[in-house]
Design a protein around this nucleic acid. Structure first.
Length: 617
RNA sequence: GCCCUCGUAGCUCAAUUGGAUAGAGCGCUGCCCUCCGAAGGCAGAGGUUGGAGGUUCGAGUCCUCCCGAGGGCGCCA
């Protein structure tokens, strides 16, 4: 893995190569041994360490420290490694020559900051957002949208061809029920409003809800006749509503022009609102990424057929199921009434994404509760061979499960009245908080935003508010739940979006001032002298590897942690090393160059997370 | 009942995928701008990593069993 995640632009990559060869010499064995090069955890251990000697020595009956010595002797240090030293049970502590660091910084300062395009020629599909027609976006869509967008951006940055797929819930009985409800109320769908849609959806859900279990329970528990009759009536009503919805669905499926027109109106109305909300979030998702369940609906019969023909789909109780090894419950792909299920649609989608689009990686950014579902669907796809691209490459089918957004009470976030928060309401609040923070700071006469017009402050405030929400979401492990706490998210201290933006804006200030004073630093070579400069240089040089690792591992919070550490290293540097007021002009230029590299790295990293980096705030 | 995920400082989270003395932020204590927006910097207090075993040179991380929280379990999506 280290071979693909580091490059020769980084010390870790150079060391990896040097030590890989040295280990072969030291062991007098051919083989591809991972030298386990890591940044030193503690500055007193040097800059980097090689941790390979212990485990290699063990399996060969050697003494770890002796092997470590032999590895050191076999390394060709060149002018790059300054010192090597055995420590503890067999660690090799390595320090890097400062002049070499300056040269490496020069190398990584190109437009792509050394990241490169290891994904060139590879195709990935990211399933993200996943809105449902006739429903407004709520917090549940927040995570899928911003995590998915970040995953897509990371892959784009590393050269992959990326397909963003917004797998709309735009087909099936729930939509038909809403349509049926709109017909009942004689709503003109050509002039459909969001309120109409919300009401129709709610009515459909309420009137279509049956309580069979309650009825069975009532009878079993010997409840009085009144209760039983009441429940029977409710069920009969629900059956009637569902029956009519099924008629609507049938008409829609057979292409009835009126139904199709109304269905399109429904989608249009929903998506207007969705894209309006998404525009607040600064994500790259548009109508061109829509590919909903309806897209696959016509292919479902052939999906089932393919499984049956392959002998994998078997009849069971009138339904068609796929048995999965090690699972007691099979995967159901056709109901006994002939209808299809969401597993069927997902299988059709996998085939499209892998076989048709040629995706070597398919990432589903979907709620953790659907874990079992995806495990089974992936297993089904593998059984029938739809996990192989046309070129026969085995695709990495990957569910990226994420946890819930919780309220202060640690339960899923709700409004005071118990409804789901709409995403719009949430974002509007975040933006107004961001605007307030920015306006408060602009009151300071020292601030570059002092005296800025309202529109300008609002634009920055919006960026800050959205950054707070997105960074808070992306900066902790995706699998875990988190508490939505705007006060903490919007703080300018700690590992937050606004802090990262502020660090960036402050550097912009220095560069701006330098330009005003007529200082040129364009191609100045960074000279690494002080300890702070060295730490900062090493941190900067870790950027390409961090981006690649984050992309490989699908863990955006790693990039956040890195950016935070970079900002901290910059703080120490800024504290200890005067830039514009340095003693000699060469040092001024060198330090400005470091500032510029940090600024560009922060900007680039935030961009990969979908977060804007204003120059002033 | 079965399966999955999580459990780290008072609170919110990390821990480079098995490496050295488990690190940050908030809150708490004490210093530091006649200096590039004090965004901070330096020092300190705060931990039996839910518990008990096991694997090995080495475990927050891997294996087993408990405890606790959340979630999922064929004809809904």
């Amino acid at each position: 893995m280290s071979e693909t995640t580091t490059t020769d632009l980084e010390p870790a990559g150079k060391l990896d190569r040097l030590f890989r060869r040295a280990i072969e010499v030291a062991l007098d064995e051919q083989g591809d041994f991972d030298p386990v090069i890591r940044p030193a955890q503690n500055p007193e251990f040097g800059d980097y360490q090689c941790n390979a000697a212990m485990s290699l020595a063990k399996s060969r009956g050697l003494k770890p420290r002796e092997l470590a010595e032999r590895i050191i002797e076999a390394v060709e240090p060149g002018d790059f490694i300054q010192t090597m030293e055995v420590a503890g049970p067999g660690f090799i502590n390595i320090t890097i020559d400062p002049a070499a660091l300056g040269e490496m910084l020069q190398e990584m300062s190109g437009p792509d900051l050394g990241v490169g395009t290891p994904g060139a020629g590879h195709v990935i599909c990211v399933d993200l957002c996943g809105v449902n027609v006739a429903k407004q976006m709520h917090v549940g869509h927040l995570r899928s949208t911003i995590i998915g967008d970040a995953i897509a951006r990371l892959h784009e940055r590393t050269g992959w061809t990326v397909h963003r797929e917004n797998h709309l819930g735009d087909w099936g009985l729930p939509i038909a029920m809403t349509m049926s409800s709109l017909r009942d109320s004689d709503t003109n769908t050509a002039a459909l409003t969001l309120d109409d849609l919300n009401r129709a959806y709610r009515d459909a859900q309420l009137s279509g809800r049956s309580d069979r279990r309650g009825l069975e329970g009532a009878i079993a528990n010997g409840c009085g006749p009144h209760r039983v009759i009441e429940l029977q009536e409710q069920n009969a009503g629900a059956d009637e509503v569902i029956g009519r919805a099924k008629q609507v669905l049938l008409a829609l499926q057979s292409g009835d022009p009126v139904m199709v027109a109304e269905w399109n109106d429904l989608i249009q109305c929903t998506m207007n609102e969705v894209f309006d909300t998404l525009s607040m979030l600064n994500v790259r998702i548009g109508p061109e990424h829509n590919r909903g369940e309806s897209f696959y609906s016509r292919r479902l019969p052939e999906v089932v057929e393919a499984f049956v023909d392959a002998g994998i789909g078997i009849e069971d109780d009138g339904a068609i199921v796929v048995r999965i090894e090690g699972q007691e419950r099979p995967l159901l792909i056709r109901k006994s009434d002939g209808g299809f299920l969401y597993a069927t649609t997902d299988l059709a989608a996998i085939r499209h994404r892998v076989v048709d689009l040629g995706s070597e990686r398919v990432v589903y950014v979907v709620d953790a509760r659907q874990r079992d579902h995806f495990r089974d669907v992936f297993a089904g796809a593998r059984l029938i061979g739809w996990d192989r691209t046309g070129e026969g490459i085995r695709s990495d089918l990957h569910h990226l499960p994420f946890g819930s957004v919780l309220g202060a009470d640690k339960k899923p976030l709700k409004t005071r009245s118990g409804d789901n928060f709409t995403l719009r309401a949430l974002l509007e609040e975040a933006i107004s908080r961001g605007v307030a923070e920015v306006a408060a700071r602009a009151a300071d006469e020292q601030a570059p935003t002092h005296g800025m017009d309202e529109a300008g402050l609002h634009a920055i405030g919006r960026a800050v508010g959205i950054a707070a929400v997105k960074y808070a979401d992306l900066s902790s492990g995706v699998m875990k739940d988190y508490v939505f706490d705007l006060d903490r998210m919007i703080a300018f201290e700690g590992n937050t979006g606004p802090y990262m933006q502020y660090a960036h804006a402050r550097i912009c200030s220095i560069l701006h001032r330098a330009t005003e004073e007529g200082v040129e630093w364009d191609h100045a070579a960074p000279e690494i002298g002080t300890i702070e400069e060295k730490q900062l240089a090493i941190m900067l040089l870790r950027y390409p590897g961090t981006v690649r690792e984050t992309t490989d591992q699908l863990e955006p919070h790693r990039l956040c942690t890195y950016l935070y550490e970079l900002a901290n290293a910059y703080s120490s540097f800024y504290q200890g090393c005067p830039v514009l007021k340095a003693d000699r002009p060469e040092i001024v230029r060198s330090r400005l160059r470091l500032c510029e590299l940090v600024k560009r790295t922060l900007e680039d990293g935030l961009e990969l997370l979908g977060i804007e980096a204003p120059d002033r705030m």
